[in-house]
């Protein structure tokens, strides 16, 4: 086989190899970044004002979008379960399935994705703009470590406040199902709440909060990582923002699968 023919035939394999190597290198870079960022969370100096601002942005200001998403999803879930259950006379399971569906899966995942859309994008765009306008360099010359000042407070806020958002989302999601079920499907309010409460276990709630912490970490980490590594100019900021949301959404769904396996696989 001639040399030229060999190279032509192996070109697709070489391209595949380059992509795999690129992916592995990216995973390595993100992992190292995550470890470094986490180490800064626990080492002084600490920046309480930046942490408070991050808590406000990630948590408090996300409440409206999280609440509305959970409310509508809970309502829609109740309607679907009722319609599906009706086919084999199992309409009565609506409170239980809404509760389990929201607490175990939809609550954490929807909150995670909403945080990815709202918070990851804003963190990435803000830090990327700081990168292209030399504000990150200015931080360094002012003896302030960008990882401590920008990444650590946001990461900690994501870890702590997203579980709380998930808890709020779970409650509002169940309330959405409750409203639809009692308003138009003929369920009695008292027994709906009793059935929901009786069916949920401590493990369901712990898994929900643990997923929230993991998704909060992923969402803020991706925002910070892509922002810090942004390219130049407006295009660089745009690409960093897009990449951060894509990566956060995919990683949240992958982590959800992994955590569901850990918590609930027999």
């Amino acid at each position: 086989m001639s040399r030229a023919l060999f190279f032509r035939l192996s070109a697709p394999l070489a391209a595949l190899g380059r992509s795999v190597l690129g992916l592995l290198a990216a995973i390595g870079r993100v992992t190292l970044y995550a470890f470094e960022a986490l180490s800064h969370v626990f080492r002084p100096p600490f920046y309480p004002r930046e942490f408070a601002a991050a808590l406000l942005n990630v948590g408090w200001l996300s409440l409206p979008v999280v609440g509305l998403t959970a409310l509508f999803t809970g309502g829609a879930l109740a309607l679907q379960i009722y319609a599906g259950g009706e086919r084999f006379s199992a309409e009565a399971v609506v409170p239980q399935i809404v509760a389990i569906g929201i607490v175990r899966e939809l609550g954490p995942v929807l909150v995670g994705l909403m945080i990815a859309a709202r918070v990851t994008s804003s963190i990435a765009a803000e830090i990327a703009t700081m990168r292209v306008t030399e504000q990150i360099d200015a931080l360094v010359t002012l003896s302030t470590h960008p990882m401590k000042y920008l990444t650590a407070p946001r990461l900690l806020a994501g870890l702590l406040v997203v579980p709380a958002l998930v808890a709020v989302g779970d409650v509002i999601g169940i309330y959405g199902g409750f409203l639809v079920s009692t308003g138009s499907l003929g369920f009695a309010p008292g027994s709906y709440i009793q059935n929901t409460w009786d069916f949920l276990t401590r493990a369901d709630m712990i898994s929900s909060l643990a997923k929230g912490a993991a998704f909060g970490f992923i969402a803020t980490l991706m925002g910070c990582y892509h922002g810090m590594n942004s390219g130049r100019g407006a295009q660089g900021v745009g690409r960093a923002t897009k990449a951060s949301v894509e990566a956060a959404a995919v990683l949240i769904l992958a982590a959800n699968f992994l955590l569901t396996n850990i918590f609930f696989a027999a």
Binding site: T133, E134, Q135, A138, T141, L142, S143
Partner: peptide, 15 residues
């Protein structure tokens, strides 16, 4: 770094 001050081209003020 405490010995240095720097004026950046675009100001680089924290907005």
């Amino acid at each position: 770094l405490a010995r240095f001050g720097m004026l950046f081209q675009g100001g680089a003020l924290f907005d």
